[in-house]
Nucleic acid binder design. Structure first.
Length: 857
RNA sequence: GCGGGCGUGAUGGAAUGGUAGACAUACCGGACUUAAAAUCCGGAGGCGCAAGCCGUGCGGGUUCGAGUCCCGCCGCCCGUACCA
């Protein structure tokens, strides 16, 4: 093909994708002896269409995969589908289509779209989590975990829709009401299955230190989520026996030092004492009911106005004879954390202070800042900083740690009932992982409930427990529950009639081991082949959205520990390198009636946005994350079919740092597309010059070539794709100028062009192939090695240093690379641009070699 | 509510504590064209004739030197355990 023609991306790209397929270029072999590199992007939920977020995510991963391949690694870069979950059931209800049919149709269309991006994926390893083969193996893992004691059965609360008679997800509860029925949501206690992630709380916490290729922010978020805190469990003696027969209330506190500032005790609405009081107190019962109508989400509970109700019960202050404190039921106490009860010290906890001010409870300041005196008083803002104890009897003058220790020691030594009144305790915010879902479209939990034998695991030879196809979604609730035959089984132990478990697993379970399954996706006799898994894991580079920073990543870390315990290979940390990319955003548009309008329906008329069809004015709103509900989406298909995949990929890598949100703009797409065309022209022009002997040495171009290679490889390794893009622009500018200079020798041009193609091949792989062939190279650019840097061309023998006077740049000076400090100082002082800012000798001269000189006047 | 992050020209952004604004977009000027698009060449943070002064959300601090580190605010975003 002639390079003088405009580059017809859609046609040429299709040609190269077919050629890659034909050559089976991206199939990975487990027995390849080269060093391994596992690059993985978080697999998509098959919603039906890929969105720009996918394009961004998979482009980044593909750049890494192609770069590592060029660097000589045996690269594993697989793709699959996170295919269970609620949307398929919603589609079933709305459109009367079976979840399986809907899901697999979506997978087919999304796969086609992903293929059009030119991703270097090993599609032979593809699977969906809803494949029977996959969830069969997941059931094996569940049973292995059960055997290892990593599974527990406990009760926990769910959002219950009393009208639809169904469990609601948190996102289905809107302002305390069911999204469909509009009914007030209730809380219900259900017996559910849990994975005992808390067994590994300390290990998961400690091992974060070793995750040195994870973003600090994610490591910090995980630490805080696990929330290890050292504190005290202590019991308050009740002045009268509670309605549940109790004589004491046990609380957990991390601030026992503030005990002399305590002015109330509060228990959660779900606390047994609260429940018992409610039986005789309609007002308390009403308060508890109101609290529970908020649903189960922490956001709803903790951001609600702090309220409580006095139970009438009183407890004794442990150190102040005769002092009693009221016991409240409060809406901001979580039953799941600690003991579900606290003592409130308003002066040193903002929630407690808000509560105390509302109910007119005493506020006693017991810690003062180190630089305040003993008259310090907190006012309306709780003081939570470091300090010294005041108003606290035997604690006065102590530091907070000493006071904590003093209280703990005293309460440990004192008996209440037959036990020490206090006990030092490490508490975690992390709770066990509830995996039960009362839904159809998920992996069935392989157990059987037998009245005689209790809970019986489904025997291995009866696996998989498959989802029945004959289900309907015309009524709410879990179709498995009402299925005529699914639930009816014979007990494997006693042969008596039994009931099959109808809960399915949380979809986070599916995504907690898919990366391990990719290493041996066809193994039928076991979920994970230990030695194969160990040869590939950890994933060298994992890329996905920051929204998964906690749950998915923490569950996966736990899962691999459980997998190891179950004997399926020892790789406790699944992801050695993690990168969290930002979202794709776009302007939002509304018509006069206030309806959202798609970007493609908006045109500019003399700078004013109007509707393309009706011509009515459009209001341009904020730039927001692309979402179907706001219609501010751009279809990747449209972009790829009109501009080509390379343009879309290049756009996604350009300008914006990958961890930040990127704004999709028409201007940006045009710019990316212009560069694709420009590179094609540039290389066409270069081909005509590659045989020229030239009259110069081409050293400037050669230096730029090698400096560019070095910069781009370090940018890609650091995932600074936007920087790599800028380097390529600079390189193209240099090459273009070199071509305009007849002195530039053809050899330097050929070297530069050849290297440039190899360097942009990971980002614009189709264009790279076309250019590769055009300059007469053999084989595929996708199979070519990364260019080698000639280090001798990177060495400069002189450096230009900025010269500052009092921190302001006043001059520049060029000195030999290894000039002595004294020589630099002398030369700098001789500069007229320095002298005129000095009157008299300088006080100091700071010379930072190869960096800067600062003269302090 | 709590935890985490981000904020730099008109715009996206660059900058191991060391020349703020690389590179790109939009814009302005020029070349080519009957004209336009495309392409090529050049300009450009603000104020100022200039010397220079000001400038990285706001207010303080550390430092010879702060976009970068520390403290306090403001705004936006993510997570908050049954969305994936």
């Amino acid at each position: 093909m002639s390079t003088s023609e405009r580059y017809n991306a859609p046609t040429i790209e299709a040609k190269w994708r077919a050629a890659w397929d034909e050559a089976d270029l991206f199939r990975t072999h487990n027995d390849d002896p080269r060093p391994k590199y596992y690059v993985l992007e978080m697999f998509p939920y098959p919603s039906g269409r890929i969105h720009m977020g996918h394009v961004r995510n998979y482009t980044m991963g593909d750049v890494v995969a192609r770069y590592r391949r060029a660097k000589g690694y045996n690269v594993l870069h697989p793709m699959g589908w996170d295919a269970f979950g609620m949307p398929a059931e919603n589609a079933a209800m709305q459109n009367n289509i079976h979840p399986r049919e809907w899901t697999y149709a979506n997978i087919a269309s999304m796969k086609k779209q992903l293929k059009s991006m030119g991703l270097s994926l090993d599609w032979s390893r593809e699977f969906a989590t809803c494949d029977v083969d996959y969830y069969h193996q997941q059931q094996r893992l569940f049973l292995a975990f059960l055997k290892e004691g990593l599974v527990a059965r406990k009760t926990s609360k769910v959002n219950w829709d009393p009208v639809d008679q169904t469990v609601l997800a948190n996102e289905q509860v809107i302002d305390g009401r069911g999204w469909r029925s509009g009914a007030q949501v209730e809380q219900r206690e259900l017996s559910q299955w849990f994975f005992k992630i808390t067994d590994y709380a300390d290990d998961l916490l400690d091992a974060i230190d070793g995750l040195d290729r994870w973003p600090d922010k994610v490591r910090l978020m995980q630490r805080n989520w696990i929330g290890r805190s050292e504190g005290l469990r202590m019991r308050f003696e009740m002045k009268s026996t509670g309605p549940d027969g109790s004589n004491e209330i046990e609380v957990f506190t991390t601030r026992p030092d503030t005990i002399f500032g305590a002015s109330f005790v509060a228990v959660a609405a779900g606390h047994p004492l609260a429940q018992a009081v409610a039986a005789a107190r309609p007002d308390v019962a009403a308060f508890i009911e109101e609290t529970q109508r908020m649903g189960t989400s922490a956001v709803a509970i903790e951001s609600a106005e702090k309220k409580g109700i006095d139970t009438g019960l009183r407890v004794a202050h442990p150190f102040l004879e005769g002092e009693v404190m009221p016991v409240y039921v409060a809406n901001f106490i979580l039953m799941e954390y600690g003991t579900g009860a606290i003592f409130g010290c308003p002066a040193h906890d903002q929630r407690d202070l808000d509560f105390a001010l509302k109910y007119d409870l005493p506020v006693i300041t017991v810690v003062r800042p180190n630089d305040a005196d003993d008259t310090f008083d907190v006012g309306v803002e709780a003081y939570t900083g470091d300090g010294v104890l005041i108003n606290s009897h035997f604690l006065n003058g102590m530091t907070i740690p000493d006071a904590k220790d003093a209280i703990a020691s005293r309460l440990e030594a004192r008996m209440l009932g037959n036990q020490p009144q206090g006990e030092r305790k490490v508490n975690y915010r992390l709770r066990d992982w509830g995996i039960s879902r009362q839904r159809y479209w998920g992996c069935p939990i392989p157990v059987i409930h037998c009245e005689a034998c209790g809970i019986v695991p489904v025997p291995e030879d009866q696996l998989p427990v498959t989802l029945p196809d004959d289900v309907t979604f015309d009524v709410p609730g879990n179709p498995l529950d009402r299925h005529p035959t699914f639930t009816k089984v014979t007990c494997p132990t006693c042969d008596g009639p039994a009931r099959r478990e109808t809960d399915t697993m949380d979809t986070f379970v599916d995504s907690s081991w898919y990366f391990a399954r990719f290493t041996a996706p066809d193994a039928t006799d076991m979920p994970i082949v230990p030695d194969v898994m160990e040869s590939w894991l950890p994933v060298d580079q994992y890329i996905g959205g920051v929204e998964h920073a906690i749950l998915h990543l923490l569950y996966s870390r736990f899962f691999m520990r459980a997998v190891a315990k179950a004997g399926y290979g020892d790789r406790p940390e699944p992801f050695a390198g993690l990168f969290t990319q930002g979202m794709v955003t776009h302007e939002t548009y509304k018509d006069a009636a206030g309806n959202w309008v798609f970007p493609e329906e908006v045109v500019l008329d003399n700078g004013a946005a109007v509707h393309a069809k009706t011509g009515e004015p459009i209001t341009v709103g904020a730039v927001e994350s692309m979402s179907k509900s706001k219609k501010n989406v751009v279809d990747p298909d449209e972009i790829i079919s009109s501009y080509g995949a390379d343009t879309a990929r290049w756009f996604m890598l350009s300008d914006t740092p990958p961890e930040r949100d990127i704004e999709w703009t028409d201007g940006g797409v045009d710019s990316a597309h212009r560069f694709v065309q420009r590179v094609w022209r540039l290389i066409g022009d270069a081909i005509g010059r590659m045989e020229d002997p030239g009259t110069g040495d081409g050293l400037a171009l050669r230096k730029a070539t090698h400096a560019s290679i070095r910069a781009i490889e370090s940018d890609i390794e650091g995932l600074g794709f936007n920087r790599a893009v800028a380097r390529l622009y600079e390189w193209a500018n240099v090459l273009q100028k070199a071509l305009a200079d007849p002195a530039t020798p053809g050899a330097a041009i050929r070297e530069s062009v050849d290297a440039m193609i190899r360097c942009f091949a990971p980002m614009m792989p189709h264009l790279a192939e076309e250019c590769w062939t055009a300059i007469g190279n053999e084989g595929f650019a996708a199979a070519a090695s990364w260019p080698k840097v000639d280090e001798s061309l990177l060495v400069e023998d002189a450096v230009t240093l900025p010269v500052q006077v009092n921190g302001k740049k006043r001059a520049e000076i060029t000195v030999p690379k290894d000039a002595a400090k004294e020589d630099i100082e002398r030369a700098v002082l001789a500069l007229e641009d320095v002298q005129r800012f000095l009157d008299g000798p300088p006080r100091r001269i700071i010379v930072v070699p190869h960096r800067i000189v600062n003269v302090v006047a």
